[in-house]
C-alpha cells in the first residue's frame, strides 16, 4: 500500500473511517491534501456515493479552488442537491468580525462560468 501514493492512502483512510466507525458526522480538515487535481472529481464522486449510502454528513475544509470546483462537478453529476459551500470572510470595515456565507450549486456554477473566485 505504501507504493500507491498519498491519494490512495488518503482515500482509504477516509473510507475506513466511514465503514469502521460508522459516524453520523465526519469532519475532514483540508480534504484536498494528497490529491492530484485531475483526480479530485472522481474522488468526490466516490466519496459522495459512499456518504449517501452510509447516511453520513461530511464537513470538509479546503483552501483549494480545484477541490471546490471538483466537488461541484461531482455533485452535479450525482443529481439532487447534496452539497453546500460555507465560506468564512473577514470584514474589511471591521476586521474583528467574521461573516459566514453559504451558497449552493447554482451560484458555484455561475462562478465557474464567469471565472470568479469563491474562496
Amino acid at each position: 500500500m505504501t507504493q500507491l501514493g498519498q491519494a490512495f492512502a488518503r482515500t482509504l483512510q477516509v473510507y475506513c473511517e466511514i465503514f469502521a466507525n460508522r459516524p453520523k458526522i465526519l469532519l475532514i480538515d483540508e480534504i484536498e491534501n494528497g490529491l492530484y487535481y485531475e483526480g479530485m472529481e472522481d474522488f468526490w464522486k466516490g466519496l459522495m456515493a459512499v456518504l449517501e449510502d452510509q447516511d453520513v454528513q461530511l464537513f470538509a475544509t479546503t483552501h483549494s479552488r480545484e477541490c471546490m470546483e471538483a466537488a461541484q462537478k461531482a455533485a452535479s453529476a450525482m443529481g439532487g442537491d447534496p452539497l453546500r459551500f460555507l465560506r468564512l470572510d473577514r470584514r474589511i470595515d471591521d476586521p474583528g468580525k467574521i461573516v459566514a456565507t453559504t451558497f449552493g450549486k447554482e451560484e458555484m456554477e455561475t462562478a465557474i462560468e464567469f471565472n470568479r473566485e469563491m474562496r
Binding site: 465560506r87 473577514r90 456565507t101
Partner: peptide
C-alpha cells in the same frame, strides 16, 4: 455570495 461582497 462572492468573497468581495461578504468582506464589504
Amino acid at each position: 455570495v462572492s468573497p468581495e461582497y461578504a468582506r464589504g
